[in-house]
């Protein structure tokens, strides 16, 4: 386990072996750089084609039966597109705005103005970071209270200027630290829930990776919420749940927890928690980031167009009804 390359998900190993084989054959087949000991007259094209076909079949098969715990692994894939990737892909003229005017600029949440299609928007998203230094800088996407307060400040700017709000959710959870508690992590999230429920502009949220509990919900209350096909959304991470309910977090208990938590996009759609599931490219967003970004953009354009039609009162009533209906009792 420990020797495993972090970019290599265990259940994708046969795929990666095939990919390696294909690229080796491709290199050999390249007339420019025909390798030593290979007969230049042999055409490897057929073999490559066959390997590609079986690669695709395998990819389809693996992803058609992805278990919940493996879905969580895909959602955390280091190559999975993050907020900044989506912003770069389809937000025009992004203008980042910093700080909560109170304590700090929390890099775990990115906020700013930008255009999606022709619509001027406020854009808010968790920021996980890529390389080690970047990840540390933004605390692996685990926001502090100042992150939630910054997000609210910028969302209120959106309300003031009549700009719809788009939030991209991707966090393991709000940060459980001393400073976070001292500065009111719970209060910051709670206030966001209350205020987002009454902001007088459309709010659209997309869970792009991890939807970890209150830290995710803290920028995830609004008129529409969609999940990318292989993202997760739950009250607690599978590891956290396993360590409480099974008293220990092991690969096995984590898998059990992921199963019972019903954290996949489809589960949450069935439970009435999210409105839509955005399809990812075959084999997950990390395999084709361009297509993934195009899918998210298409969804946002549609939702922005739909929500624009509502008068403010209607919008807020519908938002309340949507939240009001959530839950199951006997």
């Amino acid at each position: 386990m420990s020797s495993m390359n972090i970019y290599e998900l265990e259940f994708e190993r046969p795929l990666i072996a095939l990919e390696k084989q294909i690229s080796e054959l491709e290199a050999q087949n390249d007339p420019e750089r025909s390798a030593v000991g290979i007969d230049a007259d042999v055409d490897l094209g057929v073999e490559i084609g066959e390997l590609r076909a079986s690669h695709e079949a395998m990819l389809k098969k693996i992803y058609a039966n992805l278990s919940p715990v493996n879905t969580v692994k895909v959602a955390r894939h280091p190559n999975r597109p993050q907020t900044m990737d989506y912003i770069k892909a389809f937000v025009k003229d992004f203008c980042e705005l910093h700080g909560d005017r109170n304590y700090a600029d929390d890099r775990a949440i990115i906020c700013g103005f930008g255009r999606i299609g022709k619509t001027k928007c406020v854009i808010i998203g968790h920021n996980k970071g890529k390389d080690t230094a970047g990840k540390i800088k933004c605390n692996f996407g685990c926001a502090h209270p100042e992150g939630y307060r910054k997000a609210l400040r910028i969302m209120q700017l959106g309300e003031k200027y009549g700009l719809p709000i788009v939030t991209l959710i991707d966090t393991p959870g709000a940060y459980p630290g001393i400073g976070a508690e001292e500065r009111g992590q719970a209060e910051a999230i709670a206030v966001n829930l209350r205020e987002m429920s009454r902001l007088k502009v459309p709010i659209i949220s997309v869970v792009i990776g991890e939807g970890g509990s209150g830290g995710a919900l803290g920028i995830g209350v609004g008129d529409r919420i969609a999940m990318l096909q292989y993202s997760w959304w739950s009250v607690i991470s599978p590891e956290g749940c396993a360590s409480i309910l099974w008293k220990t977090s092991t690969p096995e208990t984590n898998a059990n927890a992921a199963e019972v938590l019903h954290l996949t996009a489809k589960d949450n759609l069935d439970l009435g928690i999210v409105d839509d599931v955005i399809k990812e490219p075959l084999g997950g967003a990390h395999r084709d980031r361009t297509v993934a970004a195009a899918q998210v953009e298409k969804y946002l354009l549609g939702a922005l167009r739909d929500l624009k039609r509502f008068k403010t009162n209607n919008l807020l009533n519908k938002r309340y009804k949507r939240l009001r209906a959530m839950g199951r009792t006997a």
Binding site: A190, R194, R198, L217, V235, N268, L323, R324
Partner: peptide, 26 residues
Amino acid sequence: GARMQESSLSLAQMAKTSAALARFDD
């Protein structure tokens, strides 16, 4: 805290109750 056995249904109660409090506040 939120009840794990109801997963995202529990999480949603946070938003639901807070939204009701916003209206009460209004």
